[in-house]
Write a protein that binds this DNA or RNA. Sequence first.
RNA 1: GGGCCGGUAGAUCAGUGGUAGAUCGCUUCCUUGGCAUGGAAGAGGCCGCGGGUUCAAUUCCCGCCCGGUCCA
Length: 913
Amino acid sequence: MLEEEYQLDYFKAQGFVRKTCKACGAAFWTRDASREVCGDAPCEPYTFIGNPIFRPHTLDTMREAYLSFFERQGHTRIERYPVVARWRDDIYLTIASIADFQPFVTGGIVPPPANPLTISQPCIRLNDLDSVGKSGRHLTTFEMMAHHAFNTPSEEIYWKDRTVELCDQFIASIGGDINQVTYKENPWIGGGNAGPSVEVLIGGLEIATLVFMSLGRQKTQEKGYDLKGEMYYPMKLRIVDTGYGLERLVWASKGSPTIYDAVFPEMVSHVMGLAELDHMLGNKDFAKILALNAKYAGLMDISGTNLFNLRKKVAAAIDISPDKLDKMITPVEKVYAIVDHTRCLAFMLGDCIVPSNVREGYLARLVIRRTLRLMNDLRIKEPLADLIEQQFRILGNRKFEQDIAVVREIVDRETEKYAATLERGTRIVQKVAKTYKAKSQRVPLSEVMTLYDSHGIQPEMVKEIAAREGAVVDLPDNFYSIVADMHSESKKEVEEDKTAKYMDRVRALPPTKKLYYEQPADIEFEAVVLDFFDEYAVLDQTLFYPEGGGQPADTGTLVSAESMVRVDDVIKVGEVVLHHITGGVLQRGERAKGMVDEERRLSLMRHHTATHILLHASKEVLGAHIHQAGAQKGADSSRVDIRHFKHITPDELHRIEIAANRMIMTSQPVEISIEDRTRAEQKYGFSLYQGGVPPGRDIRVVKVAGDIEACAGTHCQNTGEVGMIKIIRVEHIQDGIERIEFTAGVAAIYYMQHLEQIVNTSADILSVQPENLPATVTRFFTEWKDQKKEVERMSGKLVDLETRTLVAEVVGGVNVVIKRIDLPQKELSALASSVAEKGGVALVAGGGETARVVLASGDSRVNAGEIIGQVCSLLGGKGGGKPSMAQGGGPDINQLDLALKVGRERILASLHD
RNA sequence: GGGCCGGUAGAUCAGUGGUAGAUCGCUUCCUUGGCAUGGAAGAGGCCGCGGGUUCAAUUCCCGCCCGGUCCA
């Protein structure tokens, strides 16, 4: 980035000088001409610990100080957005305040909710999860306080000078000495945008970043810049994107040893108490160690082996062994991590994330399990739900959409699930360990991989449990990267977009007038054919709904003067609707009459409206966290996938069904309006985006019985037209997602008639009244089981009886029984083996549909497995088994006597050898 | 969405192309004044569901259902 970007009039007027850091070589601005380093880590250590640089503040007072300062400077205060970025399809969690306004506001498509504005946005970043608690400064959750100004070519709000000036003034307003502040030049690139940026440093701490987003990847007439090999060009919109770290400001205002002591002191002391570490709290020497630890940690990246180096450094400074230090400090680090993680979870669950093994739900589960592990390490018995509830209270209940009772239930469930996984895991590892120990081998890496991949058992745990069993485990340091490599081999399939290839062809055509929105109840229309290619017809206007939003396309017919054709598919390319035609062609310029298949269209509309109703009914019954995870409408039945943390019970399903049908019976009007995206978001919240995030400045808002969504589908005009909703089944798609399959309108009636028929037919078969079906079926089933047992007993007796009447010939001192007994195979086996058990040889055969032969041998000279093959081949079949016991059969029952004769000869021959 | 592992007695799990097993629990009896315990006997299985291969499938193959788990 060019140097002149940072030559601000404000810097000059205030007497700043531009210097180059002696340590890192970066350029920075300062009022202190004698300054030599930039003020950033690792060039400069923390100076504020034990020596606060602002007036003391809590999170709440600091936030208020910030927001009201910027309000006084003409900014509008905006409510925070959720920590789960439901308006984005590229990220799961809100990672910065500017993320609230991407991509539509920053892309210039939609105006901002206010301009300029100020906000304190809770953000979650899990990339530094490992460092949380250890470094003294890392957090998973932080509030990014910001003021944003969006400058357009026609309206300039303010730009770099004013932004830096506001920063100075704000720092002064909370008691900071602006002479200590440095502004470090640090060009910013991210998410396809770039611009000059300065880091705001004081006391060795970066407290804010001021970004001037002014470049984008889109090529323009103006001169471009090459940044890290990519070309960037000036954007029309220039955005002031600032980010002030609320927690860091509070930390610097208190000068406590770690950021954790500063931002959540009540929770730290509470969890310390639970871990029985209270004695550490008042200990001054210990506070010194922590401060020292944080200071050094601030100077280094502590991931991986660096943590050991940090320990060594701190240990050397206070003259104790690194081991001893580690024992002292590790439990406290875990306490900090627990406090941080529970706050993170309060935000995640409070903003309605449902833990699962997909998407943001996976991240929530990750944090939950990590926290449970930490609590277990410290032998904290208090339920995790209690800790999260306390965080809820500290943060203020009103901030969250989700009810604390539901949050508690979710957490308790997750806790139980994790305990079950651990228990199961322990057993599996013990078994594996024993196996390898018995073979006196090491447990191979492949085994550890399977345990992790398939059973979710951490390698460290495998090692620990195996050690208890006395087995050694092969575990390389780069275990996780090996796992990652294994997974990355899976190929990604690129889905072909059929609309893409018509993009150019369609560009010249005017947008199709969408009669299906204007007159959704109509089924006939007239239009002019604008274009015809590849069996696709483009009309000036249409009633045919193109596939989209989980609703399939309409079908129907088009009639022109020349021909009558079927419309079997309809797609939308940009704003142009393409009708796929079969059975003829259409000419450009001719008039055509269109007729939509009425039944199908009506049914699709009913199902679509029903989807909204059902979603709202589910929310009423199950809780605020219910969000749509996908939906597919059909003419006969439809399904909607919802995020929920447990199986929906039959009772809940009934209540949902009733609630949904009540909404139908009250015949509430369906309201559809086109609204400005930002205003709609402010008005209705982000549950608008149940079915995904539509592009564009305006969105189509559909209100159905209290459900408000951005939706492009066709709908009934009031809920009564849906007729009825019948839930067919609920399916558990994957962890955290339940699929409700249902049918609506006439299709629902057909479905119930079908059910009725199944019941009636079944009742007829048993000659009972439908009401008695369950009782009768139960009776039949138990009787069937009893009789099966009875048959078994009888068979046993039969075998006994037969055994006693068997006449054996004695050959070479061995009893040989050859007999045809028409019994099932199982009994034949029992019979033969009872002879063999006494040292005899028995060849028994039975007839029926096919011949069955069993040969059991209690004499080593007679190999049953060999002889049976020959016997069965005579029957046109095969057989086999062990030397002591063989079975077989074949279709030629007539040959049975011959087969027995040959068998007898073979047995006798064997005994004579 | 992609991958991997699993589904056998009430529970936990062995096992096998050829008569379904162990341990705990359960029932009854014996030992004891009673309990812990010890001994004996017994009940309890659509070997997840549906198809295929085979003389024969709980076992092999395919599809489905259910549970677990890793990754994006």
